[in-house]
Design a protein around this nucleic acid. Structure first.
Lengths: 154, 154
DNA sequence: CATTTTTAAGTAGCATACAATTAAATCGTA
DNA sequence: TACGATTTAATTGTATGCTACTTAAAAATG
């Protein structure tokens, strides 16, 4: 029974504040689980994309993860020096860089299978609650994308 | 009617992926609105905390925003050189640094009042939907904090 | 009262994100 | 076919976040 504030700038009313803190909080649960695998969370997301559908171009990974080349390029370099992926220029279109899994990168999937259940266990939230949250977040993502699309280009 | 995948590592099933992308997407809506004020989103959050309850120590801001001193220190320096805040050592406890608003920082609140409605407008989501989302996120934050608290300390 | 422990900020180093720019390859079209 | 426009990555520079460590001050303890 918290008294509702009328202040529109109250921290506890800001959806984006809740969003940012929730993301950071959940990431802090992933971190110790991913660390033994030698992956950060963004790197883990790239690996998820590759396990689902390798090989992928940098651009395709960017579309799937909503990340740009300035973020992906150094990240992919680190994944390559870790031995999980290989990057090569496409023969068909030399502008594109194709990202492929190494056997080592493929093998990592085995360990990754333990991550989602471990996260759910540590969170202690019900699967339906998490499902509902994911649906809700997907709506926000769609809404944001619409907003971006209609933004006036200078 | 998307066919549900049985793959537990499918990107579209990862709550944390949705969380991270949603946060980034909504931030991209704030960015052009905050830029004319000369604020980034984390800086905006610090200002919200100060508008609500200045003066605050660095530690108090960290508690409210769930941020540590390594993040806050440089951020506060930038807010200070922008002329929005002043930092001074506490007289009572010289370990603490007290953050105070400048008149300029106080005045900025006027412009900030336009931010929340502008974000809601651009998102195009209903207030009840946003409220429900915020509630849901607050649950996740609480769950994460419990998980962190119970984490075995090495 | 002296020493140890704890606490509050800050610094150093690393890994994202993002805006702006660059470089190279491809495409479209005259 | 030549050439300007577009596309794909990468690079540069700035601002978070986080881990590990440092410094200084306050608190606790013998």
């Amino acid at each position: 029974m918290t008294k509702p504030t009328e202040d529109p700038l109250a921290l506890e009313r800001q959806v984006c504040f809740a969003l940012v803190v929730a993301a950071r909080s959940v990431l802090s649960i992933y971190r110790p689980l991913l660390e033994p695998m030698g992956l950060t969370h963004p790197q883990y997301l790239v690996m998820l994309a590759l396990w689902a559908d390798a090989p992928l171009s940098v651009g395709e990974i960017g579309t799937m993860l909503q990340l740009d080349s300035p973020t992906l390029s150094p990240l992919l370099k680190r994944l390559e020096s870790a031995g999980f992926i290989i990057r090569r220029r496409s023969d068909v279109d030399e502008r594109q860089v194709i990202v492929e899994l190494t056997p080592q990168g493929r093998d990592l999937r085995e360990q990754a299978l333990r991550i989602p259940p471990a996260v759910v266990a540590r969170l202690g939230m019900s699967i339906p609650d998490l499902e509902a949250l994911r649906e809700s977040l997907t709506q926000v993502i769609a809404a944001s994308r619409r907003a971006d699309a209609s933004e006036p280009t200078s």
